[in-house]
């Protein structure tokens, strides 16, 4: 065998096929395809799969017989009527952003019309929390904002945009969306024993941010990567110092032309496993 993965054995094929639904929805996935190919070429495995699927179908049918309380639907609908949507921070920030934009526009109009010598406008050294300005942003604010964004993602159920451990697939996915080359393999190699399992896109102050989903042993964390040009400060943040941001452990650092923020998947995630 010349490089590449060794062929799938029966035990591996059984493990994969055991998790597949008989409707064939997962057949497009390479590992499932390979397992099905094994079953096609091995009559014993094929017979096992046929028995497995028949039994699964019987169990599915039985479990769908479990009665649901007749009043449950009306209870749910009645309960929801007395709930009012929470005014969440993202909405507040959007409104603040809009207000800041209006204020900024008003100041600019005023300065244009003001008589010469009225004095120069103050420089807005820090981007507004709403993200309206992308002029200046520190690594610390990148870290805090990304941890906040992740907390927000978690609150609605975080899922990667792409779930795969294939480095090339993730690299292609992100490079197409960020319009810059993201050396995913190199980045992951620099993170201890971290292994890639997916990715997602995020935005920060108008910048596209790549998000790599990683695990190391039982720990899981997410790495936000942005090009250095998004940060114009030279603020010294101690490399890989772990801080608690929005309830999650987070660390920020720079390397080459990129800035990174690593956020733990859970408040108790041990980020040192990734360093």
């Amino acid at each position: 065998m010349k490089g590449g993965k060794p062929p799938m054995n029966n035990q591996e094929a059984k493990l994969i096929l055991c998790a597949c639904r008989s409707d064939g929805q997962e057949q497009h996935e390479p590992s499932v395809r390979e397992a099905l190919d094994c079953a096609e070429s091995d009559p014993v495995l094929a017979a096992w799969l046929a028995r497995e699927q028949t039994l699964d179908a019987a169990l599915c049918a039985k479990l769908s017989e479990i009665p649901v309380p007749a009043s449950l639907k009306s209870e749910i609908l009645a309960g929801a009527r007395v709930i009012k949507p929470t005014f969440v921070w993202t909405d507040a920030r959007t409104l603040l952003g809009a207000a800041a934009a209006v204020a900024l526009a008003a100041v600019m109009v005023w300065s244009k019309d003001a008589p010469a010598g009225a004095g120069s406008l103050p420089v807005f050294a820090q981007a507004s929390p709403s993200g309206v300005s992308s002029a200046v942003a520190s690594l610390a604010s990148f870290r805090n904002d990304m941890a906040g964004s992740f907390a927000q993602m978690q609150s609605v159920g975080f899922t990667p945009d792409l779930r795969t451990s294939n480095v090339d697939a993730v690299e292609d996915f992100l490079t197409q969306r960020v319009s810059r080359t993201i050396e995913v393999g190199e980045i992951v190699d620099n993170l201890g024993d971290a292994r890639l399992f997916g990715c997602r896109m995020a935005e920060w102050r108008g910048q596209k941010v790549s998000m790599l989903c990683l695990n190391s042993g039982t720990e899981e964390a997410h790495l936000f990567v942005v090009h250095q040009s998004a940060l114009t400060d030279v603020e010294d943040v101690k490399p890989k110092m772990i801080e608690n941001c929005s309830g999650y452990p987070a660390a920020a650092w720079r390397d080459g032309d990129k800035a990174y923020v690593l956020v733990g998947h859970r408040p108790e995630t041990d980020l040192t496993k990734f360093f």
Binding site: I76, G79, A80, P85, V88, S155, V156
Partner: peptide, 16 residues
């Protein structure tokens, strides 16, 4: 638990 889940949706699910 089912009811509680839909109440969560009513409170926050619109963000999805």
């Amino acid at each position: 638990l089912t009811q509680q889940t839909f109440l969560r949706w009513a409170q926050r699910g619109f963000q999805l």
